[in-house]
Simulated assay, not measured.
Amino acid sequence: MPTWEAAYCEFFVARRRRLLGIAYAILGSWPAAEDATQTAFVKLYVHWPRIDPAAVDAYARRTVVTTSIRSAQKRAREPLTDAVRDAAAREVDVDVRVDLTRALADLSPRDRAVLALRFLEDLSVAEVAELLGVAEGTVKSQTNRALARLRAGETTATTERKSS
Score class of each variant (00 low, 15 high):
F12L: 15
L107H: 05
V98W: 11
V139H: 00
R118C: 06
T138P: 00
I26A: 13
L147T: 10
D111Q: 15
R17C: 04
E136D: 13
G133M: 06
K74G: 02
T66L: 12
Y45G: 15
Y24H: 15
E5G: 03
S163D: 09
D111P: 05
P53H: 02
I26N: 10
A146W: 05
I69D: 11
V134R: 03
V56M: 09
G133C: 05
V42Q: 10
E5Q: 12
T67F: 08
I26C: 08
D95I: 01
L80V: 08
R62V: 04
P31W: 13
G137H: 05
V13N: 14
S164C: 11
V56A: 15
R102Q: 14
V46L: 10
Y59C: 13
W30S: 11
M1A: 09
A7S: 15
L115C: 04
C9K: 12
E10G: 14
S163T: 10
G21L: 12
V125I: 14
A14G: 13
A83G: 03
A146G: 10
F119P: 01
A89M: 12
R17M: 03
R90W: 13
E160S: 02
E154Y: 15
A32C: 10
L123C: 04
A40K: 06
T159P: 00
V46M: 05
T155F: 00
A60R: 05
R102D: 11
A157Q: 05
V92I: 13
I22Q: 07
A157D: 04
L120C: 02
A135L: 01
R102G: 04
P109Y: 00
R161I: 01
R70P: 03
S124F: 02
V96S: 11
P109K: 00
L150E: 00
Y59V: 15
F119W: 05
D106A: 08
L20T: 09
S71F: 14
W30H: 15
Y8V: 08
V139A: 01
R118F: 08
N144W: 00
A87F: 14
A6Q: 13
V42I: 06
P79W: 00
L120S: 06
L115S: 03
A25M: 14
V92R: 02
L120G: 07
A146H: 08
A40F: 06
V114G: 04
A83E: 12
H47M: 11
T37W: 04
V13Q: 15
R62A: 14
I69V: 15
A76R: 09
D82Y: 09
R110T: 08
K162F: 07
A129K: 00
R161Y: 12
R161C: 07
E5R: 13
D111C: 06
W30M: 13
A88S: 03
R97H: 14
L100F: 02
A40V: 12
R90M: 09
